[in-house]
Design a binder for these strands. Structure first.
Length: 460
DNA sequence: AAACCGGGCCAC
DNA sequence: AAACGTGGCCCGGTTT
């Protein structure tokens, strides 16, 4: 690890941080062991039943026949890849990093083979079984103690393991419920989750100070994801109810990938496959997500994009506009920091840490943002840990997920604790670090007393 | 038998 | 020119 010469503060942050995180590790999170055992049994049965059906299909029999093994292993993506792309001669829609045909979820879906969709169901359920199994293996007297490290990540973020507290399913509703229903506060308490809203975007803005981005951040009426949705999908007027999914598509399929350094060819493909319905390079009429009552594919054809090629050209123009016009200073900052790295061999974070060694262009702008954003969270975590002990709260900090803090709160303290959290995260932090030139905001979710983590809902 | 690697998938 | 950033964990399959 390297720390820039001027920064004793950086050194101190990690030392204070690891102690505060260590105290959270000691507290841990309660797990419902009987629930885990029960649910694993159910999952095992569901997986077995789908597998039995799968083994009774012509697809499986053909796969077995073509194999030189006594029994094909359904879990072997190597065997599946050989069968699909060598024996059956399907054309892979995607290649792996090493250049072989991919058998990931997206690739298998594109093949549109019903048997493979069944297989995908078992893979999802197996993943959930694994998550629960990790909880089970790691629990001691019904409590897990996820570890948090500050020495593993190249960008100076944290990592978590045994079990990993930072990748518990949440986006898929069923997966979220199955996994998070296993996690509980101490008896009589309730879980509270505090998230910084758009933390990395805000911290990036502190570095590049792009005029347009600062306007987006400072004007609550404005919304860059909405604006990009309008541009990408050629909407006349934006209707939040009707176009919510398109806003999400613009955010996760264009804006964030662009910020991380992706480019238009990937963006176009992902947008088309995930939200439209474009298996063979052509929008499939009457399919895809709905805009009110019109399928997205029909809308895209109506506004002049009949196939992936035309849509890609459209996204290419939008990408150019995005960096040349909309976020011009952001783009210039990216170029400047890449030049600085090439000249000096390192990049310094605003929090005093230094990144050096072999770095790619994208690394030079991603590391300082990712690291400093996490350090905001860590600073807040340290302050809360100190106040909690000084004031002898019954409430405890129990974990952290990059831009979020999780607490186990005594109900009597909820109101006071949330007030302190708000002050520390949104007022004290920007006062302590003068390079933070944008307002910081948080959202809080709370669970019922004695309720599981799956039961969280927005506070206030 | 252990170590390693590729590929997949969950999170931010 | 280049072409999505950071992790942990699981599994199959190969090398040591």
């Amino acid at each position: 690890m390297t720390i820039s010469p001027q920064s004793y503060a950086a050194y101190q942050l990690l030392h204070d941080g690891i102690l505060a995180l260590g105290r959270a590790e000691q507290v841990g999170i309660r797990v419902d062991v009987p629930y885990i055992e029960r649910t694993q049994t159910e999952l095992t049965a569901r997986i077995a039943s789908i597998r039995d059906e799968f083994k009774d299909t012509p697809f499986y029999r053909e796969w077995q026949k073509a194999s030189d093994k006594d029994d094909v292993n359904i879990d072997s993506h190597v065997q599946l890849r050989d069968f699909l792309y060598d024996v059956k001669q399907y054309t892979p829609t995607k290649l792996t990093a090493k250049g072989s045909g991919s058998t990931d979820k997206e690739s298998l879906k594109q093949l549109n083979i019903p048997e493979l969709n069944r297989l995908l169901e078992t893979k999802k359920l197996k993943k959930l079984w694994d998550v629960l199994n990790d909880f089970y293996n790691e629990q001691v007297n019904g409590v897990i103690h996820p570890f948090f490290s500050l020495n593993n990540v190249i960008s100076y973020r944290s990592s978590s393991d045994s079990p990993n507290f930072q990748n518990i399913p949440i986006r898929d509703e069923e997966s979220m419920n199955i996994c998070r229903n296993a996690l509980y506060p101490r008896p009589g308490h309730q879980l509270l989750e505090v998230d910084y809203s758009g933390l990395e975007v805000h911290i990036a803005a502190c570095y590049h100070q792009d005029r347009t981005m600062l306007k987006y951040i400072n004007n609550p009426e404005s919304d860059m994801h909405r604006d990009m949705a309008i541009q990408i999908f050629k909407l006349d007027a934006y209707d939040d109810h009707k176009h919510k999914t398109l806003r999400k598509a613009a955010k996760n399929g264009f804006v964030f990938p662009q910020f991380y350094g992706d480019y238009y060819v990937n963006c176009a493909k992902n947008l088309a496959c995930n939200w439209g319905q474009l298996p063979q390079g052509r929008w499939q009429e009457g399919q895809g997500i709905l805009l009110g009552d019109i399928p997205l594919a029909d809308h895209m054809i109506a506004v002049g994009f009949r196939n992936l090629k035309q849509f890609t050209a459209h996204i290419e123009r939008i990408e150019r506009d995005f960096w040349d016009n909309r976020f011009k200073q952001y783009a210039r900052w990216k170029r400047r920091w890449w030049e600085t790295y090439q000249r000096t061999g390192y990049i310094d974070l605003y929090t005093g840490f230094r990144c050096q060694g072999v770095m790619r262009r994208n690394d030079c702008v991603n590391y300082p943002v990712q690291g400093a954003a996490f350090h905001c969270l860590l600073w807040s975590f340290i302050q809360l840990d100190r106040i909690m002990r000084e004031e002898q709260w019954k409430t405890r900090l129990i974990g952290q997920i990059h831009d979020a803090i999780v607490l186990d709160v005594h109900p009597d303290e909820l109101e006071y604790v949330t007030k302190v959290i708000h002050r520390v995260t949104c007022d004290d932090l920007p006062r302590a670090w003068d390079w933070i030139i944008v307002p910081l905001e948080i959202e809080m979710d709370v669970c019922p007393v004695d309720g599981s983590w799956a039961q969280k809902s927005k506070l206030k």
